[in-house]
Amino acid sequence: MRKDKLQVSISEVTKEKVVRKISYKRKRALEGGLYILPWIFGFIVFFLYPLGRTIYNSFNKVTYNAKAGGYQYTMIWFKNYKRILTEEPDLAIAFQDFFVQILTYVPVIIALSIIIALLLNNKMKGRAIYRLIFFLPIIILNGQLLENLNTYGGMSLEVGGFVITVIEKISPEFLVDTVTLLFNTILQVLWYCGVPILIFLATIQKIDKSLFEAASIDGASSWNIFWKITLPTIYPLVSVVIVYLVVFMANIDSTADNSINNIINLSRYNPARYEGYASAQAVLFALLQVVLIAVLYFLTHGKKRGGNK
């Protein structure tokens, strides 16, 4: 009898424990939700709603009519897109520039920032000063600064006449153009390197030092160590850097470097275009960017698996 009672009470206790555990779990989940709450609000108000609105507007023709009280929307489906893609070429040209800029800048930026990160990783005098210099663009880079430099000079290295004559003497003409182009854009490319250098440097520093020691005891040259240890470690970060760079270059404020945002902003006030047309432009821009990121990401991500065989 007593034993029975005891058993019952034990089972009750465990039951209660289970219940309490569930309620504890639920409480934790609710608590976690509380921390996310601001984000959910922000996501709906500043992401989801504007996104839906932009997509909806892109199918509309917007006209301004003061008598009828402001802007008026009429559904025209894909006519805005048709206009952008087939009739008015300004955005298509800006897209082309953006596309070419990404494809040419990104590999150069990645190569340069890996090199600089490797150099900065060395133990040497004045490391702090060098780091100060190379991280500076992260802090001061802004659209207006770039624009002033582009309009008033200072963003292109002046190649001395002598260098050009030498190059002209020894090489065909197209190479001269390439070299001058390189000197014209190298500064900008370097200034975009700030964050990639930072990412690569942090990764290199995380590699276990004993790995290098073991390799050099086994007789690996520093050249081999670079290709067999350092590079495979930083390679996965290349795709991360690519995503960062595409987003960064898409959002930069300077019209000289990326005219797309400016075109969209101007369309908004242009009576022949207005909001609907501008929204369609924005949607196309987002699509281009997503496709670019996806393609570049999977291209570089897939290679990693091949290389690790």
């Binding site: 908004r268 821009f285 960017q289």
Partner: peptide, 26 residues
């Protein structure tokens, strides 16, 4: 914290990073 839709939130946060600001400002 563990709760339903946690992974989804992380993916959506990444999505907000990728989308250009031109898409939202109007």
């Amino acid at each position: 914290f563990k709760f339903v839709g946690r992974k989804l939130v992380i993916v959506l946060i990444l999505l907000t990073f990728i989308m250009p600001k031109a898409l939202f400002f109007i």
